[in-house]
Design a protein around this nucleic acid. Sequence first.
DNA 1: CAGCAATATAACAGTTTCATGACATGTCGG
DNA 2: CCGACATGTCATGAAACTGTTATATTGCTG
Lengths: 230, 230
Amino acid sequence: MSAVEQPHVLVVEDEPAQREVLAYNLEAEGFAVSRAGNGEEALLQIRENPPDIIVLDWMLPNVSGIEVCRQIKTRAETRDLPVIMLSARSEEVDRVRGLETGADDYVVKPYSVAELMARIRAQLRRTRPAAIGGQLTFEDIVLDGETHRVTRDGKPLKLGPTEFRLLSTFMEKPGRVWNREQLLDRVWGRDIYVDTRTVDVHIGRLRKALRQHGGADPLRTVRGAGYALG
Amino acid sequence: MSAVEQPHVLVVEDEPAQREVLAYNLEAEGFAVSRAGNGEEALLQIRENPPDIIVLDWMLPNVSGIEVCRQIKTRAETRDLPVIMLSARSEEVDRVRGLETGADDYVVKPYSVAELMARIRAQLRRTRPAAIGGQLTFEDIVLDGETHRVTRDGKPLKLGPTEFRLLSTFMEKPGRVWNREQLLDRVWGRDIYVDTRTVDVHIGRLRKALRQHGGADPLRTVRGAGYALG
DNA sequence: CAGCAATATAACAGTTTCATGACATGTCGG
DNA sequence: CCGACATGTCATGAAACTGTTATATTGCTG
């Protein structure tokens, strides 16, 4: 991670298990993480030690996430603080949208870690561009997280959303072997039921996409273990 | 067939809620988790299906955590099993007593999951580096658990899943002699019936793979006992 | 050195794992 | 409502891997 200084994320989530999983993932990505288990705590922390971005669960005891968000966006000194809302169901997203709380982005549970990460980066890119490297590079492949574009040897590649997330996962740690479970968690999202063999199919599609202008297959199949880039 | 890929953690905690939160978090991190609600169950599981590490609550009904730990550390065959003790008390006296029973680390409740995770990794890094994606080195052989790559004298070696696991086992304790039963347990997994002679065959295959670019055979046959690396 | 037991190796057949194309379903914008 | 695109599952065939057996070799004992 090429952060000059670690971006600081505040995670507001009342369910300890989910909070910790999220915090752990963020820490693993090189973020500095603070935690809050409820709205009051969140508002207090924002005043005492303002983060660079907030990931806010919609459902919170007492002061709801919506209310927290509203307060953040009302105060002049915190108005620029990016807020990403987490919501449990897709129907609720519409309600949240309707309420116009001013959140900068919404992520629906179950979300893929990769997706949330990408959105956090997208927000930070807006406010702290220096802290985030917008592009990932591996050999002649360049992936731009902001524009969602991938090029190989300068030529643009056409790939679907799933293939894009797959590739970004691989490109974050070139060489690392991911097993199918890990890829499902990361690319598809936790708590989603899909056959693990489906991963194979998408790997195949990604391979095809990467070869569309010629060039060798950069993906490596590790029999009995999973897949890796390079 | 059970993938012996993920490190296996045994959680011993009598309070179901706490046990599940912990197990959930561990599973989210990619560990394979077994659970035990009391000391007897824990000891039984350790015998039947030994984990790579144990997270052990101090306070347990009947057989206390201390006693479980003492028994683990008394037996020769489980002495190397890392134990992390969880305790509600924070007095120094307890810490000392906990470590006296032979626990490898000690975490005081309430603990942060991230911290516990870090300590688990630290223990595994010590005892089973390859299991958490570390690198192992022996002479000119390098095995990387993260990329699943093995090189000798810089040149990549091609080996199948079983040979890979076999080699990581040897490389975790260079010089140690493993008999065929132990190798079967560790590389093939319990509850799998294969002829012990099969080990010989795979040792042969591993030897061939290690010699594929020339170089001496680093494996040592100990007649009547088993095999060792170096 | 002969005889014996343990180990090494080669060959083989069965099984598992993976790659790929086809297809039904679902989604989204027009 | 249609059509293009995306997605998950399945069927099939190929390739890699595995366990066993049979046979050769080795090392030890006396």
